[in-house]
Computed example of a mutant assay.
Amino acid sequence: MSRIGKLPIKIPTDVVVTCTDLQISVKGKFGLLHNTLPNCLSVKQDNGILIVNLENESKTNRALHGLYRTLINNMIIGVSEQFTILLNLVGVGYRGVVQGKELILNLGYSHQVIMQIPEGISVQVIKNTTLELKGCNKEELGLFGTKIRSWRPPEPYKGKGILYEGERVIRKAGKSGKK
């Protein structure tokens, strides 16, 4: 049995979890999320606690047990609190602006980078160079943050690029001149 999978999930009072045969839905103040469970798992709910049970033990089923327990836990946390990602734009002239459902980034290219903000994700720009991404679906939020970051990943020589909050870039020495 998976060590993570056997841990119970505490359900907050403002979250409603509905389980049918292979479908689980989680509804809270920030949204509604759905997920489909594999055949080897079942979910039991009683007294504000959710338990994911494993039907038969094989190596892949044990891995799925821990994975789906974590996915369900992330769904519950997302609809009750929301997930947040902070991105820092580091570089001369790097800035971001939100206009409607579009994120406009100036990243040193000859053109502006215009990205559509997905449904369920909110973007707030703080002091032109910090982006705060919020959403209840952790997977979609991380994917959108990675798409933004892929326009200018951090480079090790000058330390410029789009960095996650608290990320450190290990700097390299540049070319040394002839001696």
Rank of each mutant, 00 (worst) to 15 (best):
M1V: 10
I9N: 01
K10H: 07
I11Q: 08
I11C: 09
V16S: 11
T18P: 00
D21H: 09
Q23G: 01
Q23I: 14
I24C: 11
L33W: 04
L33Q: 15
N35I: 08
T36A: 13
L37S: 07
L37P: 13
N39W: 04
C40F: 02
L54A: 07
E57F: 13
N61Y: 10
L64S: 06
H65V: 00
I77V: 15
Q82M: 15
Q82L: 14
L87E: 12
L87F: 10
N88H: 15
G93E: 01
G93S: 06
V97I: 15
V98W: 14
Q99Y: 11
Q99H: 12
K101H: 12
I104W: 09
N106W: 10
L107Y: 09
Y109H: 10
Q112E: 14
V113G: 00
I117C: 03
P118W: 02
G120H: 03
G120R: 06
S122Y: 07
S122G: 08
V123L: 05
T129C: 12
G135W: 13
C136I: 02
N137D: 15
K138I: 14
E140M: 13
E140R: 11
G142Q: 07
L143N: 12
I148V: 12
P153M: 01
G161P: 06
G166P: 02
E167Y: 00
I170P: 00
R171E: 02
R171Q: 08
K172H: 12
A173S: 05
K179H: 11
